[in-house]
Amino acid sequence: MNTALSVSGLVKTFGRTRALDGLDLTVSTGEVHGFLGPNGAGKSTTIRVLLGLMRADGGTAELLGGDPWRDATALHRRLAYVPGDVTLWPSLSGGEVIDLLGRLRGGLDARRRAELLDRFELDPKKKGRAYSKGNRQKVALVAALASDAELLILDEPTSGLDPLMEEVFQDCVKEERRGGRTVLLSSHILSEVESLCDRVTIIRKGRTVETGTLTELRHLTRTSIHAELAGPPNGITALPGVHDVQVDGNTVRLEVDTPQLDAVLRQLTQVGVRGLVSQPPTLEELFLRHYEEELTELEGTPR
């Protein structure tokens, strides 16, 4: 599979702050790649380096086979970008902005533009100053999605959209994936990432902490089990990878490292299972685990 963009060991400092501290990110052509991290982790900075708006202090970045800084103008013909905080010119209408950005990129599909305006229920005649945050975001989304760019870079594109529009957005991204476009989706909305992304990269403090397919990542975390047994559970706590065991008569709740799931189930069936509820780890738990590490570290630092 081809690589649409790859970043390795990226470093960017602002004065004494190290916004990016050796970040790695690889996105393959044709995939929808989730880019996750808490606020201030460096997602937008990475994207700005990829767009050639900023120059990295260290590391390498490659975008569509070119150098994002040196070949910026040529590369930008092949990508479309939606910023996290869309600001529009107060005196230009939404329709004008969509057309302008499209033309400056090198073309816009008029039929697709009309269709997207319709689906996002966006009034293109309003002036920039009259749009709400969500509607400004829709303007940028329509401009990006109506292009024929091969790569879409979306920086928290749905933070101002209502649930209905979020649905429309997800449909659109799924269509883009079927059409073979590559999408880098930075997001805070984990359900969105779970339903859209083939692979995800989680970053924290300017560094990559996890990357892989959702299945692979799930493997790294725990499954929770709630079982009603024929008799009292024996020897469960002694098994490797089992945590937080709570026994109440014949029922047991526990968390297990996903690779050890098999052994735990075998032990449970030996006692006899009357009822079983098992929950796979959600991305949220995955994310929170990294988050909690940060919180623990914060609490540990003397003030």
């Binding site: 708006l53 040529a74 930008h76 910023p83 905080d85 869309v86």
Partner: peptide, 12 residues
């Protein structure tokens, strides 16, 4: 930050 989307197009 109005220039960001502009410079993300083919405008140098």
């Amino acid at each position: 930050q109005r220039v960001e989307p502009l410079l993300a197009t083919a405008v140098g």
